[in-house]
């Protein structure tokens, strides 16, 4: 999953190995003083989490991998 908007990672909700359903919140980004939840586009297992809480992220950067 790639980052849809530039900002910073406010909170990582998921972890490697977690099973997620479509629409589950994976992490929360903060941009323009607004918290934006990043949700799973499909069901699957989290293979990797590529960012950490507080990290600045750019649009298009890989946030996590679902398998």
């Amino acid at each position: 999953m790639t980052c849809p908007l530039a900002g910073s990672v406010f909170k990582v909700v998921t972890s490697v190995g977690a099973s997620v359903q479509e629409g589950d919140t994976l992490m929360i980004l903060e941009a323009m003083k607004m918290e934006t939840p990043i949700t799973a586009p499909c069901a699957g297992t989290v293979k990797s989490v590529d960012v950490a809480q507080g990290q600045t992220v750019n649009e298009g950067q890989v946030l996590c991998t679902l398998g």
């Binding site: 849809p4 908007l5 530039a6 323009m32 934006t36 949700t39 586009p41």
Partner: peptide, 8 residues
């Protein structure tokens, strides 16, 4: 649409 990001 939860996957639609209009903010920027």
């Amino acid at each position: 649409d939860k996957q639609n990001f209009l903010l920027m």
